[in-house]
Design a binder for these strands. Sequence first.
DNA 1: AGTGTGTCCCGAAACGTTTTGGTTTTGGCT
DNA 2: AGCCAAAACCAAAACGTTTCGGGACACACT
Lengths: 347, 347
Amino acid sequence: MTSKAKRIRRHVTIREVAKAAGASVSTISAALNNSDYVSADMRSRIEAAIKTLKYCPNDLARGLRLQKTHSIAIVVPDLSNNFYIELVRGVKDYSASASYTILIGDSRESWEEERNYLDSFHRRRVDGVVRVPAMNTTGGKAKAILGNLPVVYADRHPREHDTHIGRVGVDNTQAAKSATSYLLSLGHRDIGIITGDASSGTSRDRLRGFISAIRSAKIRLDRSMIHAGHNDMESGHFHAMQLLTRGQRPTAIFCTNNMMALGALAAIQEIGLACPEEISLLGFDDFYWATLLRPSLTVVRQPAREIGMIAARILIDHIEGRSSVPTPALLKTQLIVRDSCCPPKKM
Amino acid sequence: MTSKAKRIRRHVTIREVAKAAGASVSTISAALNNSDYVSADMRSRIEAAIKTLKYCPNDLARGLRLQKTHSIAIVVPDLSNNFYIELVRGVKDYSASASYTILIGDSRESWEEERNYLDSFHRRRVDGVVRVPAMNTTGGKAKAILGNLPVVYADRHPREHDTHIGRVGVDNTQAAKSATSYLLSLGHRDIGIITGDASSGTSRDRLRGFISAIRSAKIRLDRSMIHAGHNDMESGHFHAMQLLTRGQRPTAIFCTNNMMALGALAAIQEIGLACPEEISLLGFDDFYWATLLRPSLTVVRQPAREIGMIAARILIDHIEGRSSVPTPALLKTQLIVRDSCCPPKKM
DNA sequence: AGTGTGTCCCGAAACGTTTTGGTTTTGGCT
DNA sequence: AGCCAAAACCAAAACGTTTCGGGACACACT
């Protein structure tokens, strides 16, 4: 029942290190942030004390005092989509090189979830966030959650013009246009497209590129060939089914994200159509096992990792008061031609 | 040059809320942690102030004072492996239901990276960590990094017996044994296996199950059929190549993780063997697009999400001083029979 | 001897919360 | 009026850092 002896084991503090090393608290701090004047002798004593006591700095206290956490958050809509994993790894790698630490959020395309993450990150006082907003984000409500934390958008960008420090992605209109042109060049005239939710600027851009390509080819645009999904396999499957079972079915389907392309492929396999002979399939975003599918998937590849790295760079440059890459930063896409597209059968 | 007027905009603090609401700091705190006596009138004034000032609590200060962050960390070896995404989602969902927050680390099978994450989480003073150790973890060095933070192992467990609060996974020996038995029951006698690194207890268990099944069938064990990979596509590809190009090639290959199964599939496709007619392939871990592959993959499915949830439960129960699930908690696996295995051709 | 000029170290004041141990107010009861 | 418990509030002390302003030396130069 000794009142102070049985204190439950807390963490070792800088103060205990100070006592052990026969120094003052401020000297320990100086030694840790290896700056300032601290003699070699003192320094080694301190290091010894740290080692034996197993001292581990408290970043809560540090962040509180410094008013800076040296960390940024990244929120993506779907971690099971490999594109976002690569993107996250990009921001992580750049951040690490700038000795920033990252916190990861996975909103699963739900604004509710995203809001929770953003709020949690704000309370943790991250220095900034790179955000890939969830599809069903209605308004510019993020501002209300994040206050004036710096935000950079990656991949997707919000429809309405809300405040942000920068954005990075690809030229979606151009990418979709040239992908569509590729299908046209193969001879396709009846092309279906499954896009993401119309509330997303990115989805709209891709659709715009598609339409633009069709129009340039002087083909009548059949609006019933345009389906809006939710960037997941289910909706890809659903809308592909719709397209494939209608009266006049398209000879090619363009999916504006990889998850929907997978769903479409599943639908094609289910119906038992030969791909690409009877139906060509074109996806967006590459992934490491796209070559394992039969047919291997032809896709528009985005430089996911690079997008992440640049987003992190813009953000951290801003945080540290440097000027940076002009924004929006638009990176190049690349059409990766594999086996899932071929000229349409003659009717 | 006014010295105090031009203070750069910091975050709103509880003190400013207090001023605005005409209350004291401690009353705001009481209102926030909605407990104690605070009159309805006062409460609404406070809420109004919070809203207009856009107050956002500072979890650094809170954690510092409380000596508790209400957060746990999860470190996995490979986020691009869907199995771990599901696992992470499991711990996230359970944690959220217990109003804990999670931090995610992706070590990419590198102890260096894992160490960085663990250290960072420790400094952040998470209340505990669920850990899937990286393959190349040499010794029980995690203890040195984490001090006496509670740790629960998920999926993999360390070879040497180091201190932890619990572990959860599947009965790997049993799972591998029955999977192998399935191949044997199809008539296979020459079965190759590609396992993970031998330093992992989990890999060893799976190998043991394989061997046990072979022995039970009174078949001579050919050790040259046993290959140790690194749980990634490259090594799956490499070792499958070895197995498939040797003199007497196996009629079936068992890969003890999904990444290596994909690599093996790539090798099979490259060589131009018919799967399953000429070579059967059996994987470990299911994933959502396993049905899209041709042939669709027969696998041992682990309840990834459930593993995550239970791991989180054990950890949080421990943190809050409740007793919990007995540990180790071993969950059931399930053999998902699809198209990648069939009886071997008669020679 | 006086005056700098470095070097090395220290005490105390923040940073934004929660909690402890009060003090004041309220209102119900003799 | 007097008393008391409960209700409503508050001041101050932590929590573990970093930083600011000095202080105590040692040494070199007038």
